[in-house]
Design a protein around this nucleic acid. Structure first.
Lengths: 300, 300
DNA sequence: AACTAAACATTAGAAAATCTACTGTATGGA
DNA sequence: TCCATACAGTAGATTTTCTAATGTTTAGTT
């Protein structure tokens, strides 16, 4: 394909629209530009080709003989291109909305609410990708990411899903009856921690504790941690919101708490957001909440 | 055709080139832009469609499945468009170079030299349009116009074909033996004048003569005037260059002369000039001359 | 004949798209 | 490990494209 000697595509498109519409004014409407713009584009195309394509005939226009020939070819070409794009657009529209988030958030917050979303929007299918890796948001890939940050990294202009106390938490069978009011005392307990993260060490650093002996840390996939903590395999650092039920029923014990410390917020491709993704994001926002102390309250 | 929901044509073209070349760098070369430009165009297309079209694979790239589908359609579409344009371009290339000029210039200056041009450039056919109307220069229409102006309207930057004395001239049978040294004396003679022009009246005005009685003016098509003047039907105002032969042989008599007064110059479409037209213009310039007094001399 | 309205043409300046030059990142081969 | 190659990202420059206003031509109307 010889791209170099092709006239500007926009000029070809304008002329093709004119040929199709039989009028500059109508073509301009269809292209959603002014009549002057179309007139100029066609002029520039004629100049490029050195051939008159359109001739005025009183108040209307007429294609010249070469104009007719060109218009026929262009019409076919653009038709094919248009169909190809349309096909792809349809394909894209039916693709599930892809959402990534941390395993803890998926299991403890999103999944319990998913049924409600599906009831409201049965036409939209979601594909969840629970991982603590930062998956790139990109067309054809992840549409929406729900991410965690602590309060110390403030941002403006972001959609918040959940603001929660962050807590160190454990099962009564593991921590019951001990005096654990000093952060340093937690160095003796086994920690459970997401693969590839460093929550336990960070927590001690934040609280000014330098562990005297090596910490006992079990790394495991995020989705297993909740279960393991409940079973008494170790303690972990997490959002209180994920354990409301456990705490009020006494199945879990809160060891330390940092009020309103953790923020889960939405990241999404700002422009050209797919309509389905937008619906999901709006729903997320409608479900957003602040969880603090021993009560949870809706924000919106 | 739904032009509104079509992505930007340039982005489609860039992606099609990438698909064809199998590489951003090569595609960029073929499109004669930088690799960054192509990269951005493809990105923007992906954003528009919400679909990943290209994926990196090490140091090379690979089209995604939807990318392959789209590329196939685009390839066909652009191919058709390209062929249509190419066909037209060929058609245009073989079209005769269309030249307009005054009838006098055509008969007396250009036609005698045409044979030489044809000898030098047998592949180029000319179509002459001798008329004193100002035909619009426009793609697909007139390529080159040779126009007259008098010295009083100076221009810069124009290609001159002929600068000549302007003379009032007549056949001996009509004007011989009379004392016509006073411009006013010419009011009594019959004038021949191009249809739609006003040369005679202008000439008297320029020479400060207010005709006492109505002038005798015969209007006729330009190509007939030369013959009529030679036959002694009247006098006319013209470039001396057209009558060199007649004057030196005594077949015509020069009544008044304005040295280097008339300029014949070339008008042509500056940009996107067809190659054939350019050849002809260059030849015209090579033939250009200044004609003054009783001698003519080549300028170049 | 004069008026009116509809359609295309032209222009300057504004707005938007596009490109370049540069820098950054990843990868395969010497 | 270093180098060369290819793609990615960014800011600012450049080019293209568009709009808004106005002009021109023509067909139909009064």
């Amino acid at each position: 394909m010889d791209w170099l000697h092709l006239p500007p595509m926009n000029a070809l498109r304008a002329f093709s629209a004119v040929a199709e519409a039989g009028s500059y004014t109508v073509a301009a409407e269809r292209l959603n530009v002014t009549q002057a713009a179309v007139s100029q584009q066609v002029k520039s195309l004629e100049k490029h080709l050195g051939v008159a394509l359109v001739s005025r005939r009183g108040r209307s226009i007429e294609l010249t003989e070469p104009g007719i020939i060109l218009a026929r070819e262009l019409g076919i070409g653009f038709e094919i291109i248009g169909r190809g794009v349309e096909r792809l657009a349809e394909h894209a529209a039916h693709r599930p909305v892809q959402v990534t988030m941390s395993p803890a958030f998926a299991v403890e917050w999103l999944l319990p609410r998913m049924a409600e979303f599906q009831r409201q929007h049965p036409e939209i299918t979601l594909m969840l990708n629970p991982t603590s890796e930062l998956v790139q948001i990109r067309p054809g890939g992840i549409d929406v990411a729900i991410r965690y940050r602590d309060r110390r990294m403030p941002r403006k202009e972001e959609d918040t899903v959940l603001v929660s106390d962050m807590v160190v938490i454990g099962a009564p069978s593991l921590v019951g009856g001990q005096d654990l009011r000093d952060p340093a005392s937690l160095t003796k307990l086994p920690w459970l921690q997401e693969l590839g993260t460093n929550e336990a060490a960070d927590w001690f650093t934040y609280h000014g504790v330098v562990p005297a002996e090596p910490l006992t840390i079990n790394h495991m996939p995020g989705n297993l941690i909740m279960t393991a903590v409940r079973r008494g395999d170790g303690i972990t650092y997490s959002a209180r919101a994920f354990f409301e039920e456990d705490l009020s029923s006494g199945r879990m014990i809160e060891l330390f708490s940092e009020p309103l410390f953790g923020v889960y917020y939405i990241q999404t491709q700002a422009e050209f957001q797919r309509p389905e993704a937008k619906v999901f994001v709006n729903w997320l926002i409608s479900q957003s909440q602040v969880v603090s102390a021993h009560s949870s309250q809706k924000l919106i």
